[in-house]
Amino acid sequence: MILSEHEKAAILAELAPTGKLRFALNHGNAVLVNPGSTAHAPSGVSVDLAEAFAAALGVAGEFVHYSKAGDVSDSVAANDWDVCFLAIDPLRAQDIAFTEPYVAIDGNFMVPAASPVREAPDIERLGLTVGVTRGSAYSLCLLRESRRATIKQYDSAAQVTAGLVARDIDAMGGVRQAMQAVAAANTGCRIVEPPFMSILQAVGTRTGRPLAQSFADSFVREMKASGFVKEALERHGSGNLRVPASAGV
């Protein structure tokens, strides 16, 4: 992506009015931020994309760290970040302008091994109680679409897992990759197929910043077309995930 110095300055004036280009990093998404990576040495697909984003504008970026996605979206009004990496959701889109998605992540249910649930629609049919992490994309989806199932929100994925192990809930919803590790550690649990949703991850900027949004859109399209996203996913152990094609490609 080649920009003139004038174009870079105009984008940065709108995108980072504080003079710093701040990236919100969601450590709760194990697919995009590597588990165990710290605020001092973050790593993962989101980190790689943030560094490439800043480099395209000729500036250094800095990270603002969050433990879960809901904390990122809830902090829009506080003006604590300029660019985020979140799943697209209509509620979030009221305040965040999203690019097209750069990766699709499966959202699945996990249940006790003896559960009568055999496929995702059984959760709704049986009117079960599902635990989710508050503010996550899958929690927003389930809260919006569930009619018979009860959605119980927890403050962290660890609390949801504890609720399932203690049988306080009938199932938990979450990102497949994260739950595979939980299922491996809790042999009395299993993941339900097929996924109940596709979680479409995108780059987000604040609404009302058209130059920033246009740049972010172009950036994501280029990162997908060049193979950067796919290579980053493979490098960080998620090469099996789908990179959605851009419109018209």
Rank of each mutant, 00 (worst) to 15 (best):
G44Q: 04
G28E: 07
E14L: 12
A149S: 14
R242H: 11
S246T: 14
G227C: 03
V72N: 08
R242Y: 07
A87K: 03
R125D: 11
V229P: 10
G70E: 12
R209Q: 15
G239R: 10
I191W: 15
G173V: 10
A202W: 04
V165S: 06
V203H: 06
I169R: 06
D82I: 07
K230A: 15
V175R: 00
A184Q: 14
R221I: 08
L126G: 00
I105D: 11
R209Y: 09
P35E: 09
A39L: 02
N34H: 10
D82N: 14
R242M: 07
C189I: 15
T129R: 14
F85T: 00
A50Y: 09
W81P: 05
D155T: 12
A39P: 14
F85G: 03
I199P: 08
S67L: 13
V83G: 09
R209T: 13
V243K: 12
L200K: 09
H65T: 08
T207F: 00
S226Q: 06
E7Y: 01
E193P: 03
M179I: 05
S214D: 13
D80I: 12
S246P: 01
R22F: 13
F109P: 02
V160M: 03
V76L: 12
R190W: 14
L241M: 09
Q177N: 12
Q177I: 02
I169H: 07
A24C: 07
Q159N: 15
V33R: 07
A39K: 15
A10S: 14
Q153C: 07
L126A: 04
P17V: 08
N29G: 07
N240M: 06
D170H: 13
G36A: 02
Q180S: 02
F98V: 00
A212Q: 11
R147L: 06
S238Q: 14
